[in-house]
Design a protein around this nucleic acid. Sequence first.
DNA 1: ACCTGTGATGTGATCGATCAAATTCGCTAC
DNA 2: GTAGCGAATTTGATCGATCACATCACAGGT
Lengths: 361, 361
Amino acid sequence: MSEPSGPTMASIGRVAGVSRQTVWNVLHAPDKVRPETRARVERAIRDERYRPNRVARSLRTRSARLLGYCMEPRGGPDLNPVQDRFLHAVTEAAEARGYHVLLFTTQRGDPGRRASSRGGREDDRLDGYAELLAEAAVDGFVLSDTTVDDPRQAWLHERGVPYAAFGRSWSDGEDPGPWVDIDGAAGVESAVTHLYEQGHRRIGFVGWPTGSGVGEDRVSGWRRGCERLGLAPGPLARGDNTSDTGQALAAELLDGPDAPTALVCVSDVLALGCLAELRRRGLRPGADIGVTGFDDAPFAALPGVELSSVEQPIERVGADVVRLLIDQLTGEPPAESHIVLAPSLRVRASSIHPTTDPVTP
Amino acid sequence: MSEPSGPTMASIGRVAGVSRQTVWNVLHAPDKVRPETRARVERAIRDERYRPNRVARSLRTRSARLLGYCMEPRGGPDLNPVQDRFLHAVTEAAEARGYHVLLFTTQRGDPGRRASSRGGREDDRLDGYAELLAEAAVDGFVLSDTTVDDPRQAWLHERGVPYAAFGRSWSDGEDPGPWVDIDGAAGVESAVTHLYEQGHRRIGFVGWPTGSGVGEDRVSGWRRGCERLGLAPGPLARGDNTSDTGQALAAELLDGPDAPTALVCVSDVLALGCLAELRRRGLRPGADIGVTGFDDAPFAALPGVELSSVEQPIERVGADVVRLLIDQLTGEPPAESHIVLAPSLRVRASSIHPTTDPVTP
DNA sequence: ACCTGTGATGTGATCGATCAAATTCGCTAC
DNA sequence: GTAGCGAATTTGATCGATCACATCACAGGT
């Protein structure tokens, strides 16, 4: 029951008959130590199963070697598939550089602390960030789900707090900090191209309400794709990110003046609604109407869904975000501060026209 | 660019004209301090925005106030919906007690460290646990996805490492440690009951291969339910957790000697395969054949799926796991060490018989 | 006046790794 | 023989909170 309290540099030194500093040298500057001494110390380290105490190291070096990540309260079924993979990727990349990920939430646990905030009330969402920072519990933050002019980015930037974001800042002004993002426009454009190759000439778009950076980016890809292929952009409908909305929007477009033969959707959830509407009308996805989504959510691959979708290289994003962040922490020369990654279309039944041979340009 | 290096107890003391220990007393034993002194110190704390340094505290008290959680490499599309919610719940519950969650993975980042392990090679999956422990980086672990006789539980138990698991140990022997689990049998039984009330008298089961504790638990609920209702258990088919398999198993059962009118599935993924097979045969889920799943995965609620499913109270599980773990850490008297929570059936179209009035017993 | 007890506050040492500077050691050169 | 030089190794101090005592002030009792 008592604390065994593992070996320390001092205890290793005692075993090997050297001082604690020599032990440190063996670990961090081996060539400063005479080979036979080193061997003796290394043996002691192995025998005693010594591992440096992370906490003590953190105190001295003033770096926790921890990256903060805020778990947003789960919204719709949309963000989830990404968050899981992203976290895994971030954790793995961080470990490769000797860091770990520390999770926190926006709702502060200890109610007593809420009062300690001074008059000028900051955004509640920032409290968690502020607290971890003040407690020196993390060295920096990984952000995700950034919005247009995300207050967190400005807040962190003002205070000189290291961070890196998944999602560009979408700000008109200069960028507060480094980010990694997916080229949504390119992803959608590739979907348009694919549908064109399947024989479609009237391609509609099902999007989100205006105002979201991500959403506008994807619409622009659709416009660009149509333009490049010499098509007049088909009809456009917008609504919030639920499959019921998707179903309604699909109906709207199909009943409209110039009904599209293919629907490019800004998200898989909306696309699923479209598929439901097609089924209701007895139309076969792919054969009668081409449909594509975005995100490659887990359900897209399921039998009975088989939704073509733009897959985001989340693992790459996670790795790059961590690299940008840790490079800042270690004072590495910042190679680049904005990374845009290309997504790739995963073609499934919902967009394949059985009788049309794919045409590669 | 230079380190502002926030306020410390000593600096607060200097501002308030007292010693660091008095500052400590104000924070941890306020009644030992004269009210006017206390006021002065509290003012300084507020003015300077002092927050105790977590790292220094950890070093002195030998507790990182961090709970380790291992991100398993994502397997199929099955576990994900749960992991996300679970992590959020765990993080939130931990924060309420002044702890945070530290993520790690099984693949060790630093390749140099692999060699440092001695001859008798431990299970690779345990290395991450061992390392964090040796580095004193965490105080305990939260486990999930426990298997029958999970080696991690025994390993941690042997070393007296505090932990709590989501998922019982399923061991025949005595339990190595505390866990929280979901009463899968009860969940499946409620699905059977529900289908019975919908008029079904021949209820089949689509399960996993024998050997998984979770799977056997759920089968037993099906058997128990049938027995209680005076039904002969319908046919049973087993296969791995993919929807393709689900489709095949559904076909097998429906073509079998005594075809069931309802299918209870051990997972949503398998259930989805069943739905696909029904659609292929022109059978309407709910009206012709009742189907239920398990997990209430995000896709179960989607239009075009509408799968009845057993929903697990993941948030409760997370909160309880954290409670069991932190109670150990703080030396709280262990109130209970095994918690079984009841899941609840979410009824959707896939199991509702349009013409049958529900009968409540 | 003296001792004692209690409440309030201050000082020293500690956790373990790290940084800076001091010391010892091994060897050559005068 | 020893001054000198570089390599090898050691000692001292530090990060900030915490614990264990030490000290101080002041009250009441004899």
